[in-house]
Amino acid sequence: MLAGLDGDDRSHKALLTKLSTYLRAYFKRQLARIGQSSAEAEDLVQETLISLHVRRHTYDKSAPLTPWVYAIARYRLIDYLRRNKSASLNMPVEFADDVFVESDATAVDSGIDLSKLLSKLTPKMREAIQSIKVDGLSVSEAAKRTGMSPSMIKVSVHRGLKILSLLVREREPS
């Protein structure tokens, strides 16, 4: 986590991959407990990963990692249930459960359509995210390709990801 915060891509990816297995098991378990199909678990995993990434600056480097991840996962679950106005709004959210008791690596596709979401961003943001995040260009290469200034690229990626995290939650149910 610490290396990821300093901008080390490999550590950041490794962390997110590892967390995704725990999150998948956690959401499947929770959805099963309240009698919902676990088909939505993958959506929740991805929403949580985006939240973890976009809000990674809220992690206190001197504090243990697991409570931070758990708090965000739990928040995403409650938020998901609230949005979907399920019959289980009164579910006990204080269950003494832990994200990290088991892991599940069987990823399936989520109902989130990235290209559809990207098309809702402004052209600048879309181009910046496409170049940096999807095509893996460096900031200076992306600046050359798009004709934006390097700082503009950085800002566009940052804002674009935040807006994406909103769009993911406001998307029409698939």
Binding site: D6, G7, L16, T17, S20, Q46, L49, H57, D109, I132
Partner: peptide
């Protein structure tokens, strides 16, 4: 979308986080 695709999206050219940013 596959979760692995999302992870590689999020983990490509990650911006370093300034320390004490929140505070």
């Amino acid at each position: 979308m596959k979760t692995d695709d999302l992870i590689s999206l999020l983990g490509t050219h990650t911006e370093p986080v300034k320390s004490n940013h929140l505070r």
